Simulated assay, not measured.
Amino acid sequence: MTGPHVLLIRLAGPLQSWGLAGRFAHRDTHSRPTKSGVIGLCAAALGLDREEPLGDLAEVRFGVRADRPGIRVRDYHTVGGGTFPLRPRDLLTDHQRATKATAAAAASEPPDVFGRVDLAAWYGSPKYVTADPASGALVSQQVRRHAMITERWYLSDAAFLAGLEHEDQTLLERIAYALEHPKRLLWLGRKACPPTGDLALGVVPGTLRNAFESSALLPDATGPQAASAERPWAWMESPRPLPGAGLPDQPVRYDADGGLHSLRWETRHRITITPNAPGWDIIL
């Protein structure tokens, strides 16, 4: 069949996190799935390496409907606090620790005739064990590090209907199959956020707006956070630049250095779902 087709993808789970500008100490989440995050999900399902070009996968027109927007939650997270065994790397990279270790080694074992201290002999093993003078119990030589505090944001109990529009129906069907038979583990933006249930809901003819208007709300869209009066908001990618509507989430490539993204544009619409639109009971 010719003309545009849309692959519908269900994105639901206890937690989701779709970062736009997060760094290690502050991991943000957008209010909805990003194109970069969803294309990355599809690339992982297809088994693409980070260095591989995305090809037609990056050229799909992206849209998302917020059937259940969810609630933003903050995770107060600490990394690296407490005490740890002193490692050889600590002696090589931290001159202050090396100075203290040298003094401790000299106190327990005198320097040689040249004034040198055998740190290797003092360290002994990956976890240097000695007897505690007070209790006699065996303890490890420890160093204390200050904790790094990080702030991580998530969307709790959200459900979105994402759409990928393209002229190549075969490409969309291949992505749909991969989402249900993934070659790698799949996450809703971050590794702490696994999806629940089926992801691929099928390929339908038409545009993103047609697909969103003719698809019933997801079964997950119930309760106080559900879309009001079954008229959810939807965001659809625009083929041309729009003032004030740009997002830096158009994937160019993914790699170990964080990848490369460019700007894309989108429009926001209230979606009126067609009366008696077929539900998802058979699929979900």
Results as ranks from 00 to 15, higher is better:
P4N: 08
V6P: 01
L7H: 05
P14D: 06
S17N: 05
P33S: 02
P33K: 05
T34W: 14
S36N: 10
D49H: 11
P53W: 10
L57Y: 12
E59R: 15
V60R: 04
R68I: 03
R68V: 04
G70D: 08
I71T: 11
V73H: 02
G80W: 03
T83V: 03
T83S: 07
T93V: 13
A101D: 01
A104H: 04
A105R: 02
S108A: 14
P111I: 11
F114H: 14
K127F: 07
D132F: 11
S135Y: 06
A137W: 01
L138C: 02
L138Q: 15
Q142T: 13
V143Q: 14
R145D: 10
I149P: 00
Y154T: 09
D157K: 09
A158D: 10
A159N: 09
F160A: 05
T170K: 11
L171G: 06
E173D: 11
E173S: 12
E173Q: 15
A176G: 11
E180P: 09
H181A: 13
P182I: 12
L185A: 13
L188S: 01
K191R: 15
P195K: 09
T196V: 14
G197P: 11
D198Y: 08
D198Q: 14
G202K: 12
F212N: 13
S214W: 03
G223I: 02
S228Y: 09
E230F: 04
R231N: 08
A234K: 06
E237T: 03
E237D: 04
A245S: 05
A245T: 00
P248I: 02
Y254F: 15
H261P: 00
R268I: 01
D281E: 15
